[in-house]
Nucleic acid binder design. Structure first.
Lengths: 352, 352
DNA sequence: CTGAAAGCGCTTACAG
DNA sequence: CTGAAAGCGCTTACAG
């Protein structure tokens, strides 16, 4: 590989001049240098440049799981927004583990100029180590306790979950279950709070037997749904707190031959790529994903390139309720008013 | 940040000794050095190390689109297989564009030790530039013409597509359409060849009006399906050549209220994450994805760490036919034998 | 605008 | 096993 010395020699100037030309500064020998560069096929070594300048030219992206369509979309948004700024993306999955996340951050820190991070848990220490090291980070979809100084791009978890609750309440449901994610994550905490608030507005409380916590993965959604169906008095409606758990719940429902929405209503936080193709189509709380990634990247770039040093900026994106076919009023067999009478005879259609 | 000089000074040894200790070589002052490193919170600069050693510690991953669940799974496999080897992943999307791909490769080349690449088209020049530059690359899911020297991990496109054709033929279909991807991609070429072969085994040919080519994206699957449905004699079965186009086709079918499999059968290459939840569940050609990524990474690592210099190794993964509910024998109204008679009266149920 | 020179933080023959 | 020294390929005050 040709070095800057080769170019300088060939062009008959000093390496300093070549370096200036590379940086776009006005240089007398511009034409000769360009020629030498082309003939030698020269391209500067990013490693050497970084060593001198301290600029790494890379951004670390750490998400729980790229396999989750939401995060895949986020990554796409990140890339779109960063195009043309000369940064590359170092991607890693934390697999929802705070330990792995901390390791990854430590590994990546000396290699990047900043981070886009969706922390596994709100108690994660990794992000704080970052701010101590002076590496800017914007938190995506999830906050961290004591992390007010970070830029954050969130979705309106409370508002979305509240809308889900209101929707179910307005349909007449009373036996309503929530399959939530860990409450030590921002989405888990926010969606729970919002859901409880929405129920409260309908003078309902979340019955402890219907108050379930999974781990945001498909399998936990499936298992918990199975548990709910096995209850002596199973719920007439379920709110699943994210896309993957919704899929798990739907699979459990199908396996148990529970009809949606006849026997049970289901509404999920996050739309599914095939949400509109399901039978019935999924009622859900939809939200931007690619845009959320793009927004986060723009915040980071503004710190990196404009040297912005404000306090943490908070952006909260709106959700929207998509009423499709998976929710409806509870069937007569489950209607609260007549439930006791019917149950004395039938034992309840869904409790088996 | 502490440098190796700080550590050396504190430990009372030379930087050479510290460097050797870092590399795991036996050193007398090991204990003192360790202490100094801990007290200073020293961690070596990867940039400086790279500049000296030439080892970049990163692998470039270039795929058409991480948003495609197949590639998201592949990326997960790549990461799993590389864990513990000390490499980081630089991820970029080519967006199915050969030009963007070439730019990305040029940008990334000086920063990585090797590439995992799913080329946009078989004529791409980018990969050849790589081998000229001496940067190892393994091709994933897609080959490149004249690229016999590359390691490649493919899926059995021919076999899978042939199985799809056989399945439809065995059900009695004759008016069979294929919605393929670009034939200048390995999957497009292979799946077409396999499908034609499968039809030929049933003494059938692919009618030119049923021989469609999209771009592997959802929207093209939708558009083409609409075109097929508008045909005076629409097909009784469709084979879609990848996951995204299958989704598009299903949406078109739903929008046009065409019943599956009553009015039309559909089989896709690639399973969908919700494939089993659809009504009817999707019949498809399934294949490994995470494993394909892991395999590709192992090939690359073997070149990188063991310095293997063999000729290109080819791995072809098997597909499996998942017969679910979206395919069945053509209905009487479409049965070839009696079609002419019926059509004289009804005009055909699906042609509207 | 330009060049000589120092230095970014390491690693690695070379000599001991 | 260890240290002095050169050098990886750049950039950037400094002096002109």
């Amino acid at each position: 590989m040709a070095t800057i010395y080769d170019v300088a020699a060939r062009a008959g100037v000093s390496t300093a001049t070549v370096s200036r030309w590379l940086a776009g500064q006005p240089v007398r020998a511009a034409a000769v240098i360009r020629e030498a560069v082309e003939e030698l096929g020269y391209s500067p070594s990013p490693m050497a440049q970084s060593l001198k300048s301290g600029r790494r030219g890379a951004i670390g992206v750490v998400v729980p799981d790229v396999t989750n369509p939401f995060f895949a979309a986020v990554v796409k948004g990140l890339e779109q927004a960063s195009r043309g700024f000369g940064y590359h993306m170092l991607l890693a999955n934390s697999d929802e583990s705070s330990e792995l996340e901390a390791d990854i951050l430590a590994e990546l820190t000396p290699r990047v100029d900043g981070f886009i991070l969706a922390p596994a848990h709100e108690q994660d220490l990794g992000p704080h180590a970052l701010s101590e090291a002076g590496v800017p980070a914007v938190l995506l979809d999830r906050e961290v306790s004591g992390g007010e100084a970070f830029d954050v791009v969130l979705v309106d978890n409370e508002g979305g979950a509240r809308a889900a609750a209101s929707h179910l309440v307005s349909l007449g449901h009373e036996r309503i279950a929530m399959i939530n994610g860990p409450t030590d994550t921002t989405p888990g905490r926010g969606r729970r709070a919002g859901f409880l608030a929405g129920l409260a507005e309908g003078d309902l409380a979340l019955d402890p037997v219907y108050d379930m916590t999974g781990d945001f993965r498909e399998e936990s959604g499936r298992q918990i749904t199975l548990q709910l169906l096995a209850l002596p008095e199973s719920p007439t409606a379920i709110f699943t707190a994210n896309n993957l758990m919704t899929v798990g719940a739907l699979k459990a429902l199908r396996d148990m031959r529970v009809r949606v929405p006849d026997d049970i209503s289901i509404i999920g936080f996050d739309d599914l790529s095939l949400g509109s193709l399901l039978q019935p189509p999924l009622t859900c709380i939809a939200r931007p994903d690619v845009e959320q990634g793009a927004l986060a990247m723009r915040l980071l770039l503004s710190r990196l390139t404009d040297g912005i040093l404000d306090d943490g900026r908070h952006i909260v994106l709106n959700t929207s309720l998509l009423v499709r076919g998976s929710t409806r009023a509870p069937s007569a067999a489950h209607a609260p008013e007549i439930r006791p009478r019917l149950r004395a005879r039938s034992g309840g259609a869904t409790s088996e």
